[in-house]
Design a protein around this nucleic acid. Structure first.
Lengths: 249, 249
DNA sequence: CAGTGGTCTAGACCACTTA
DNA sequence: AAGTGGTCTAGACCACTGA
């Protein structure tokens, strides 16, 4: 039985481009899903027809489709076919920074750098960053605002040779500033907890003493496993929470 | 130049097994990494030699290696080779349940089911579970202990036809009980926040009133995007925090 | 039974890294 | 220049689904 409802994708591939064909295909389909040209539940052509029409081999077409399955945008079943996944499953968002989060949700982030100092490495930080104790590291203490209100107090430690300048940290988030230095964060270990605000913390965050705070401690690493950053953050629980989308292995 | 330090993996593949060759290979290498037979930083054979030695095609060997790269256990660089990733990058652990977490860290979990009722669906739950308002859903309220101390108060809503029994929930975590019914959670959306304990919450959790609580609201879906579960949990911040490992896209 | 995706092969050529 | 992984092809056979 010929496929009754399969959508014919309009995709132009540039076979002479240095951009891999599977990548061009995946991006094109991804765009169609994001714009709604392909609706959730809609059926795609089978991979052999798709490959033939786009003049690529079947493994290449498969690879493109598999990329989108891994992203949760497509669902494939043997004997059935390929469908666009329900909208809510699309796109895992992970490892974004607070700055990006705020900017992305339309709130206006701003940062005050309260402290920017170079000093000997404390034992705890030494462990994380794998820098010998006593060697110099940069300590940064920042107050983050959203729409003019204080939101979070963040203390970070970085190795001297990779630390962004004070000015960069005022204009960008930490991760964006690191990226400008060619440093990509690949993995982070986080612990999220809660506690009551001290008097000093309450004052600086415009909360009452003993208000609820969200706490986050993070260690971040690059793709080679080098430790890049150690951070201890506190957030006003009245104004912020962590939203995450998790996927089963 | 012949490879100087590449480790020769001892892998036996069963070419007549229904288990895919790439999967057998990936599992074998994964096991060697986990047991320490392959140490972090160690170099593997190049993929062509590996494929030849194991009598599989190069794409099959590549696929096995790629699986482990996706898991963060191997790092590959063009022109350089394949190495075992630093230990801390191995294995993303996601979407585990509190019960599994506790059992895994050697603490003894226990559960009391405080309430198990069937009743009409509240508007908020109706939205999440995509069950018409007023239709019946199961509401479960559980108190979780670790090592004899109360740790968390959890309220969950599930569709009638998939809800585990009261007895199952006493012996297992919610996700394990669902799994026993053939239901696999594939994705969950979570929000983690903090607030102060009410008098009633403090009493039941053995905390002082206005102690800090961690809050978590979760919606869980299966692989087809069907809503499975809606939960609102509170944790004693003095006894628990969320540990997560995040990976950049 | 026809149609689908899942696995596998045996090559080819290219791009990047290191010395 | 040698060695590595990255991409791509053109087939083959199998396993599962649904009518």
């Amino acid at each position: 039985m010929a496929s009754e409802q399969a959508t014919m994708l309009r995709i132009n591939l540039d076979h002479s481009s240095p951009v891999p064909l599977y990548y061009q295909m995946a991006k094109a389909i991804e765009k169609d899903i994001e714009t709604g040209a392909l609706a959730p539940g809609e059926r795609l052509e089978n991979e052999i027809a798709l490959a033939g029409r786009l003049r690529v081999s079947r493994p290449t077409a498969r690879r493109a489709l598999q990329e989108l399955v891994d992203l949760g945008m497509l669902v494939r079943k043997r004997g059935v076919g390929t469908q666009v996944a329900p909208a809510r499953v699309h796109r895992r968002v992970e490892l974004t920074s607070l700055f990006d989060d705020l900017a992305g949700s339309g709130r206006k982030p701003a940062t005050t750098v309260l402290e920017y100092s170079v000093g000997p490495c404390a034992p705890e930080v030494s462990d994380t960053l794998e820098i010998p104790q006593g060697e110099e590291v940069v300590t940064v203490k920042r107050l983050r605002y959203a729409d003019g209100e204080p939101l979070a107090l963040m203390v970070n430690h970085l190795a001297l040779e990779i630390a962004p300048t004070r000015e960069e940290l005022t204009d960008l988030g930490l991760y964006a500033a690191l990226r400008a230095h060619g440093i990509e964060i690949h993995m982070a270990q986080q612990q999220i907890g809660a506690r009551l605000a001290t008097a000093a913390e309450a004052r600086i965050l415009d909360e009452k003493p003993k208000a609820a705070l969200l706490t986050m401690e993070r260690k971040a690493f690059d793709v080679d496993g080098r430790a890049i950053e150690h951070g201890v953050h506190i957030y006003r629980a009245s104004r912020y929470n962590f939203s995450t989308t998790l996927f089963a292995q």
